[in-house]
Design a protein around this nucleic acid. Structure first.
Lengths: 183, 183
DNA sequence: AGGCCATACTTACCGCGGGTAAGTTCTGCG
DNA sequence: CGCAGAACTTACCCGCGGTAAGTATGGCCT
């Protein structure tokens, strides 16, 4: 699979990953990569989709298992996301701050892939509680964006443990999430 | 000033802004740009610094005027940031999702420029209230990151008014910020 | 079995953009 | 008047994404 090769060379070379190096890592040549996966932008999109899938899967394993949604679950969501991102540092960097001109779309696409399910979850949860639901989408993007930048910062020097950081993030937003119409 | 020319051409051409087009807009040639401002990465950095300065200035005008710090102030901070970003759409896109390989550093640099003062503010505020202060830095990054992605999403299709969105963001984090040690 | 077509790959190339080396004009000063 | 040096321009290199044209491989029909 070309995408696996791409991930390997990105993990190795960081953002300097060229189509050509990916091609040789995959054991083929450039036009083949182009034929299989399309342009560089589509490659980045595909990688972004995969990473998003992994994030969602990891989060789902935490959140989906319990039917409840509480502060602990939220912190677990953050922790699993942080750890997944930390396990794919270079890929995360490549995908979020990758090259190319298409980047606004891709960043939004990647974010949307995570924010969508989160927004659904929030919508269901707040509907059940009889709370206002219009905030679900912006809040989902807010939480994902928070996670994005904090991950970047966390990756790039500070080595506090993931679970501590996750708990701090949960502390920041939990009260807001939980505060209902009964303000 | 070369940077002004750069902003003009970015506002016009979006991310397709090449050094050459910036040079002709500035009325000079490429090596001159290179001599004055350094590499493309440094150009992006300088632009990022300027945008951060504007954001901080706008935020300071809102937050710094009142000595208090409450939900209203927080919402005003979000609103002014959103509006500043909205007024510099293309520049914001260029700077956050710009080209090049240096991007992790630059993104962090830009974010840090905003997150730093915010972290200071949070630290002072929570010190005065006798609350834990270790969360100030991660929270500052969290809030800036939130703002980043929400801005991207907001710019790119949804036209709800800035003040509504700002209020929703404030609602999300205010309780968390305000919740003290007396959990 | 032998020739033919399609598919799939490779080699070779183009264009563009960042970066730079070498040449050229302009300015001030002896 | 001539010279030194700074500042700018022209002309170029290189690397990368993208593609066109050529080449091998494998099946299929006669």
């Amino acid at each position: 699979m070309v995408l696996d090769a791409a991930e390997r060379v990105i993990a190795r070379d960081g953002n300097g990953a060229s189509l050509e190096s990916i091609a040789v890592e995959a054991g083929v040549t450039k036009p083949v990569v182009y034929a299989r996966v399309g342009s560089r932008a589509e490659l980045s999109n595909a990688l972004a989709a995969r990473l998003a899938e992994r994030l969602i899967a990891a989060a789902g394993a935490e959140v989906g298992s319990t039917s409840r949604f509480d502060r602990i679950t939220l912190a677990a969501f953050f922790r699993s996301s942080l750890e997944t991102i930390g396990a794919h540092r270079e890929l995360f960097l490549y995908v979020t701050r990758g090259a190319s001109d298409d980047t606004p779309e891709r960043t939004l696409y990647l974010a949307g892939r995570s924010a969508g399910p989160l927004a659904d979850l929030l919508t269901r949860w707040r509907t059940r509680r009889g709370d206002d639901v219009a905030v679900a989408v912006p809040w989902a993007y807010a939480i994902i964006g928070m996670l994005n930048l904090v991950s970047l910062w966390w990756i790039d020097e500070h080595d506090r443990p993931a679970d501590v950081l996750a708990d701090q993030l949960a502390e920041l937003v939990w009260s807001g999430l939980a505060a209902g119409s009964h303000r």
